[in-house]
């Protein structure tokens, strides 16, 4: 436990309380195939970690494993030092966008409210406390103007804000955000990243944020977690996003170029980020 805690990166008193998330030689599978093989990493409370890797490298699998969907085949995954359980209130989750969501004729308010203790039996009447919580979550993502509009009338970035409000319901200590920037214009990407950053800092939430391109998250992330070939590497951008580390992880020649404050990562045949444009949504 102490050894793992010592691996937490930040020289802050926070990690004395232990890690927010620990993967200890965890093997994760999806659809009967091993996706991540005996990976270890620990993430401190209040840290903002960007998770990158090609399609199918296991970003979604990793986030879902933290929710116990399903738990690891072997090794351990701990959240605030405790073993996994489904329905953990400490964790807020923004699932990867799926087709059809944007066609719903549902009001923004009703959409967010459906997630307030939606696992309970009975009628979907959320009561006064529930309404307060929903209102606060909508306020925190600055989506007041979207509450009365139908999802089918909202832009991609607006829907993402409502999804973020759902993830924030119940004041979780950890946020798992699965590709919230997908198919957004750069301008809206920046808005979402800035919003998440603001919430993360004011509420001291631990954030795991998956994305295809690391540029929108530069300057916001504390560390990056790169996934490829069933393996994971975690560290600061300067430690991990280098020719040597990424070439070893991807098992092919990778070239990293820094152009002013942007980073371009090239595999043998072209930019690695080109993956972003043929995503499987």
């Amino acid at each position: 436990m102490d050894a793992l805690a010592a691996r937490c990166h930040r020289p802050s008193t926070r990690w004395l309380a232990g890690c927010a998330i620990e993967l200890d030689r965890a093997t994760l599978a999806r659809g009967g195939r091993i996706v991540l093989d005996a990976v270890s990493a620990s993430i401190c409370p209040g840290e903002f970690v960007g998770i990158f890797g090609p399609n199918g490298s296991g970003k979604t699998t990793l986030l879902r494993a933290l929710l116990g969907l399903p738990p690891p085949l072997s090794g351990a995954v701990r959240v605030f030092g405790r073993p996994l359980r489904r329905g953990n209130r400490m964790i807020g989750y923004l699932p990867q966008q799926r087709a059809g969501l944007a066609d719903l004729p549902i009001r923004g308010w009703d959409f967010v409210a459906s997630a307030w203790q939606g696992e309970r039996w009975g009628l979907p009447l959320i009561g006064r406390r529930g309404q307060q919580q929903v209102m606060q979550a909508i306020d925190r993502v600055e989506a007041q103007a979207l509450a009365d509009r139908r999802l089918s009338q909202l832009s991609g970035g607006e829907v993402q804000r409502l999804l973020l409000a759902q993830a924030l319901l119940g004041r979780p200590r950890i946020l798992l955000l699965d590709e919230p920037l997908i198919s957004l214009d750069p301008h809206f990407q920046q808005a979402i990243v800035a919003l998440v950053r603001r919430i993360q800092q004011t509420e001291e939430i631990t954030v795991l944020f998956t994305a295809h391109d690391l540029n929108p998250l530069l300057g916001v992330m504390d560390r990056v977690l790169y996934l490829a070939n069933h393996q994971a590497v975690i560290g600061t951008v300067d430690e991990v996003v280098t020719d040597e580390v990424l070439s070893r992880l991807y098992d092919m020649p990778i070239a990293v170029y820094r152009i002013k404050d942007r980073i371009a990562v090239f595999a043998g045949h072209g930019p690695v980020e080109a993956e972003a444009h043929r995503h499987d949504v």
């Binding site: 929710l67 969907l69 699932p95 549902i106 459906s114 997630a115």
Partner: peptide, 9 residues
């Protein structure tokens, strides 16, 4: 409305 989230809960 939110199958993945519901499953997680």
């Amino acid at each position: 409305l939110e199958p993945e989230l519901a499953e997680a809960k």
